[in-house]
């Protein structure tokens, strides 16, 4: 359906201005979302954004769409439920690493394996920013975080590897210092049918070393520049995801597999929210109990 006005990024502004710290990775994601919506001609009322808790979660106040700000770790199931009920809408979960890799870890892997048709933006800064800078599940030795009074040898979770292993069908890594690439990835992720994950390296400049952006810039390279890389090969993608000396960004893996929603005949006819329920006849059903 054509809308009557021509979209621009500012159509997605609310009356509240973002309150993130200067230099926060959340700005790049916020900006990319607005621009991609315009490019894809998605109008605010056609989008459901679900936010977790923490710094990224306060984004609910700054982006004008249908929005739900939920509890720590629960953005994915809320988004999945909304997406099932209104499957013609675009549904995106935005949530932090403490959220989705911590409290929401179980829901994350099951959303991946069911290939639910939502996009998940993992705002990955390796710390619990709003709680006081504690090391998050994705935090490694490169972070000196608020609560790390001594070095404990634990392995960080690698969201990209985890998503590949769990069966997601679109898996990418972005960097908030590379907005052009982030927009391209986001556009493809939203268009992708099935569960798409973008692990966005979005540094917290408060709780990380002074030159975190410089650190990432030296370490990062784009997968698009590796001509021989085939992103439809799962084993290759997994191997790529394990690279640590230098960090690849871009799309690691993209395949078309059966989408959860497409297997549901009961939403095929029309979205669940469009059914009239005022007088549902259950007499035939009742007869089975006589």
């Amino acid at each position: 359906m054509r809308e009557e006005y021509r979209l621009k990024p500012s159509d997605f502004n609310t009356e509240r201005r973002p309150t993130w710290c200067r230099g926060c990775g959340n700005y790049a994601i916020h900006d990319a979302l607005k621009k991609v919506f315009v490019q894809l001609e998605l109008y605010p009322h056609q989008i459901i954004m679900v936010y977790g808790t923490g710094c990224s979660g306060s984004g609910v106040n700054f982006l004008r769409t249908y929005g739900f700000h939920c509890m720590h770790g629960r953005a994915i199931p809320i988004a999945a439920g909304a997406g099932l009920a209104a499957h013609k809408m675009t549904v995106i979960a935005v949530s932090g690493d403490g959220d989705i890799m911590g409290a929401g870890g179980n829901q994350f892997i099951h959303a991946c394996r069911r290939n639910i048709n939502i996009t998940c933006i993992l705002v990955d800064n390796h710390v619990y920013g709003l709680a006081g800078g504690q090391v998050s599940p994705t935090g490694g030795n490169d972070y000196k975080a608020g609560s790390a009074t001594r070095v404990i040898s634990v392995q960080p979770i690698n969201p990209v590897s985890l998503a590949i292993a769990s069966g997601a069908t679109f898996i990418a890594r972005g960097f908030s210092g590379d907005p052009l690439q982030l927009r391209e990835i986001l556009k493809k992720a939203v268009r992708h049918r099935g569960f798409s994950l973008i692990d966005v390296l979005a540094p917290c400049i408060i709780y990380s070393s002074v030159d975190i952006y410089g650190y990432y810039r030296r370490k990062i390279y784009r997968l698009e520049d590796v001509k021989s890389y085939d992103r439809s090969k799962k084993a290759e993608a997994f191997e790529k995801s394990l690279e640590n000396d230098r960090l690849p960004t871009g799309i690691f893996y993209k395949v078309d597999e059966p989408v959860y929603e497409d297997t549901l005949k009961q939403i095929d006819r029309k979205p669940l929210i469009d059914h009239i329920i005022s007088d549902i006849d259950i007499n035939k059903l009742l007869n089975r109990y006589y």
Binding site: V50, F68, I78, G81, L84, A85, A86, L272, I273
Partner: peptide
């Protein structure tokens, strides 16, 4: 809760 938010 998500599905209910959407309206069912």
């Amino acid at each position: 809760i998500g599905a209910s938010f959407a309206g069912v």
